[in-house]
Design a protein around this nucleic acid. Structure first.
Lengths: 115, 115
DNA sequence: CCATTATATGTCATATTCGACATAATGTCA
DNA sequence: TGACATTATGTCGAATATGACATATAATGG
């Protein structure tokens, strides 16, 4: 893993082992981070699509506004379980969640989104 | 949620809230359980495909044989993170993991598997 | 501008998940 | 059968994720 990439990841609150023993793991960790980035982005957009506030979603999933906020900024302390629970509570189907997990988020510009 | 279904889930070591306040959550919980069942089955078959022992996979992911065993029987104490880490360490790509998450496991009989 | 609402960030006690270990159960093969 | 490898199950202290809360920082619109 490149140092620059690791620094970026750690800056976002992620822990990355660097001992040689864990070199294979770093790929898995990076994958996990990217999955969570994708999940986070989708939780946010889905919630907004339903015009729900973080507070409301929090209540729905039995959590708190602060935790929902951490989810949406892909804080390192949020588990995949919470992402999945949230998406499910937003009406996202299992197969849709599978796609979110499997594909990188593409940040589109205003020209393509039409906004 | 039907009582029979909940009983089955709880028998497998899962905790399911039953207060009316959490009725919407139970669907999400069931989805999570099914995802983990799918992930568990795939960890097992992929590991066997590479002719790896639980002990060896455990070492690869910095865990223990007992935890790998729990993974493969879809024990309730195993997080999605660990499933993903394991699959990644077994060489499964992100898009493949997405498919595993998104689609129910189909248990095939001997006629179709050829065994 | 101010007031109000929504979102982000930090901390903390509690709950959950962790690897490790012992040991039981199952499988394998001679 | 017995010896050996592999997998399953239970438990425990340590590590991590949790909801709750306070509070900071936007964002909204009047």
């Amino acid at each position: 893993m490149k140092a620059s990439k690791q620094k970026k990841i750690e800056a976002a609150g992620w822990k990355v082992g660097s001992a040689s023993e864990f070199l294979e793991l770093s790929d898995a960790e990076e994958m996990l981070v990217n999955m969570k980035l994708s999940l986070a982005a989708n939780v946010k957009t889905m919630r907004q699509q339903v015009k729900m506030t973080q507070q409301e979603l929090a209540k729905r999933i039995g959590s708190s506004q602060s935790r929902v906020a951490k989810m949406e900024v892909a804080d390192g302390s949020v588990s995949m379980e919470l992402f999945v629970r949230s998406l499910a509570s937003l009406g996202v189907s299992r197969s849709q969640i599978g796609k979110i997990v499997g594909a990188r988020v593409v940040k589109r510009n205003r020209a393509t989104t039409g906004l």
